[in-house]
Nucleic acid binder design. Sequence first.
DNA 1: CAGTATCCTCGCAGATACTG
DNA 2: CAGTATCTGCGAGGATACTG
Lengths: 161, 161
Amino acid sequence: MSRTRFDRLNCGVARALEILGDWWTLLIVRDAFFGVRRFADFQADLGIARNILADRLRRLVEHGVLAKVDVGRSGVRHEYRLTEKGEALLPVLTALREWSDEWVFGPGAEPVIVRDRATRRRVPRLEVRSDDGRVLGRRDLRTEPGPGASAETRALLERRP
Amino acid sequence: MSRTRFDRLNCGVARALEILGDWWTLLIVRDAFFGVRRFADFQADLGIARNILADRLRRLVEHGVLAKVDVGRSGVRHEYRLTEKGEALLPVLTALREWSDEWVFGPGAEPVIVRDRATRRRVPRLEVRSDDGRVLGRRDLRTEPGPGASAETRALLERRP
DNA sequence: CAGTATCCTCGCAGATACTG
DNA sequence: CAGTATCTGCGAGGATACTG
């Protein structure tokens, strides 16, 4: 059988993964954050096959993460630019990079450092926090059905104390 | 040719994706955060094939995200529990869920609401912030080579102003 | 219950040639 | 330059049967 699709699942993580969850997509988005905009530049930087790249870019445009903009004369050049929806992925990429910096590369071996342009200081770690500033872990959180919860989601959450 | 592997790439996002970037892995981790611990429970909840689930669990244990714990008598029951490294993925899952809640489901249609157990209040959005509390977007950030940067990473970052 | 062993099918991906 | 078309194949993923 073919791959199970997640786009009907009543779960935010699943839906996001249906769009972003394959091997290449988030790397393409990362490149977009770094300022890459042209087909050839994505291709050269990632070493991805041209047809795969074309497919991923098309999907990202369909989902509104990137916008394909005609630039220059006669539509022979295009650029792929992050939309607002795309830029909203910054916390996702940041969280992945920070996790990897700490747990895969190890502290002190990060390939990239990110600073606030204004203050020149390193950006504080991305953490789940409460109103009053406490850092929250899994056990500090309580999940409950939201307005968009399906019956299954509701049942699932109630089974789990 | 087979898939390009990312585990030699000098990039945090790529390394993280080499571990987490397939279709199922982050959903398994999400379930673990929800409190799922048993093979059969993962299988029933996700509808994933048993051999694929076994493979993913093994990989997650190898990478230290989950720990396989013998429980009960004579090693006939096991549980998979999040390690510290695994729990450190909370921001990643949170970022994905929040992005999806806002941009895929739309505001007011979130399947799940997350509250701070202590205050009962909803958890503030995960945002990249500066020391002084400003919310930072892509253009507010400056990336530079870190201590673990390879020559390629260094060159890449310098090409991009 | 928690897997392993097999088999099978597509989808993902790479390589290359071609086109407006 | 920015793709499309075509070929090819590995392997991810699904289904099922079996086992300690």
